[in-house]
Nucleic acid binder design. Structure first.
Length: 231
DNA sequence: AACCGGATCGTCT
DNA sequence: GACGATCCGGTTG
């Protein structure tokens, strides 16, 4: 499974991101986002994303026009828009479309396929910082690859992304950040649904895309095939 | 499995 | 001054 991460996995070109966001979003599934720091490398295979379609989309941060926060969304495609929410979480988006269209794809979930130890360490450090009583939470559970990036904030934690990477170019050679070709999905594996936490007019739009049968797909509970206990 | 509250702060009204 | 593209742990059933 390490094969595609070698030299053969070329970063997606800017032209990939320059297309309409609803075209790009499903095609990001199965791709591998890689972040390299002095700590090491973490690679995440994307399994769930959401499209946010610029200024006309009520669910989009760009809906009410440009602000200091969303400025990156209005810039060129192929860059990363990272924002802070709930007083403690970071979420990452890939800017898409033509410059000024202010559309982006929220990276909601994935599976850590390289750097699991580093990702787990980052999660643990975060828990320590947040906990009011670190001693009480010292119980370290083993966290597997598909849980480490399950959810948008966990995904950024695993990759080591925060406000520092807001605006970072994912198509440049020096960023340490890129999305590789990965294992692009067949259309038959892509599912859609309403976006999480988006109400109002945007609530009905099926702009969440995810891979069928992936355990890392975060909050999805469709036909929750709840098995009952033994007879 | 479902529900609940707590943590915590930048952003925009 | 309210709230959010959230997560976690605890409790209940």
């Amino acid at each position: 499974m390490a094969e595609p991460l070698g030299g053969s996995d070329e970063p997606l070109h800017r032209a990939f991101f320059a297309r309409p966001v609803l075209t790009v979003a499903p095609e990001l599934l199965g791709r591998v986002i890689i972040h390299t720091t002095h700590e090491g490398v973490v690679a995440v295979r994307l399994t769930e994303v959401e499209a946010y379609d610029g200024e006309r989309d009520p669910g989009s941060h760009a809906y009410r026009g440009p602000t200091p926060r969303n400025a990156v969304m209005f810039g060129p495609p192929g860059h990363l828009y990272v924002y802070f929410t709930y007083g403690m979480h970071w979420c990452a988006n890939a800017v898409c479309g033509s410059p000024g269209s202010a559309s982006a794809v929220l990276l909601r979930a994935g599976e850590v396929i390289e750097g699991v130890d580093l990702a787990r360490r980052r999660r643990e450090e975060r828990r320590q910082r947040q906990s009011r009583d670190p001693a009480a939470t010292a119980v370290r559970r083993s966290v597997s690859g598909h849980e480490l990036a399950r959810g948008p904030a966990r995904l950024t934690t695993a990759l080591g992304l925060d406000g520092t990477q807001n605006g970072a170019d994912m198509c440049g050679a020096t960023a340490g950040l890129s999305i590789g070709a990965g294992w692009p999905p067949g259309a038959e594996d892509v599912r859609t649904g309403p976006r999480t936490g988006v109400g109002g007019a945007g609530a009905a739009l099926p702009w969440r895309f995810f891979l069928d049968g992936e355990r890392s797909v975060s909050p999805y509970r469709p036909a929750v095939t709840r098995r009952r206990r033994g007879p």
